[in-house]
Nucleic acid binder design. Structure first.
Lengths: 146, 146
DNA sequence: ATACCTGCAAAGGCTTTGCGGTTCG
DNA sequence: CGAACCGCAAAGCCTTTGCAGGTAT
């Protein structure tokens, strides 16, 4: 895992390279995403940004996460529920997902799948593993035998 | 893979057990899903059902796929784009996903990940692997070197 | 100075819901 | 006959977009 400061700096450098303006809102969105471990929704990011810049608009957050995604600095993760979630962790990692409440946790696995670079005509680029189950909180709430 | 007729019959039996009415629309939705290999969207299922029952409503299809999901007979798969897709293939299988157009293809793998039944406090139930890449059609459209 | 960006509000798309009439069991 | 279901239309999210004013370079 690369250092957060370094990633933020990389982001700023790349913005300059690509002629994108470095605005406080943009930096805030990426910084918040870098410091989140819970794969926040756009709304959640928005709430955080608002603490620093109360006049920020939700549309700006949407535009920024889209930019980040296009730059390859964040990923959109979408499993259940209505709203998309974002993840700035671009290391090879996988997800542990609660089938009840939708919570997502990052997980690193030793095992490595050997995926051919060509499969059924597809040129493959990468993979991710989703492990489904019940999170500790939801197990608690369910019958004690689970 | 279990036979389609058998699955349809199971569905009907379970409906009876659970006091759910067996309506033509319901049967049609499940039947269409069973015979689809392309993980159709609700809209696509709707278009198919309409061929048999022109007066069917989109809301009914939404309600039915939700029922099927709750019964464990279909899964909602949601990666990109706006609309959810459904899959009645409940065998252990994985997905090959085109990052460009969102096409999804089922894939069966020899390799088996050994997932502990308990992981970071989660009680695990299963997993799925998503392999990302460019589908044949999109490779074609891109530069010939891809 | 200018190209890019933001905030606002409106529009757009997918999905859910309320209701009256209908159908299955 | 009664409970469950359907079709219709409206409402409800989440997300995108157009525009006028503001900001970074």
């Amino acid at each position: 895992m690369v250092d957060r400061e370094e990633r933020l700096q990389d982001f700023i450098d790349r913005c300059r390279q690509e002629g994108l303006k470095i605005t406080p809102q943009r930096v805030a969105v990426y910084e918040i995403l870098l410091n989140s471990y819970n794969h926040p929704t756009v709304e959640e990011i928005y709430d955080e940004v608002k603490k620093r810049y109360p006049f920020v608009s939700l549309a700006t957050v949407y535009r920024t996460v889209e930019t980040l995604e296009q730059m390859g600095l964040a990923k959109k993760v979408c499993y259940w529920g209505s709203s998309a979630r974002y993840d700035a962790n671009i290391d090879e990692h996988h997800h542990l997902i609660c089938v009840k409440c939708g919570a997502i946790r990052d997980i690193y696995m030793e095992e490595d799948l050997s995926i051919p670079s060509e499969l059924e005509g597809f040129r493959t680029e990468g993979y991710s593993v989703n492990i489904y189950g019940l999170c500790p909180e939801c197990r608690e709430k369910a019958q004690p035998t689970s």
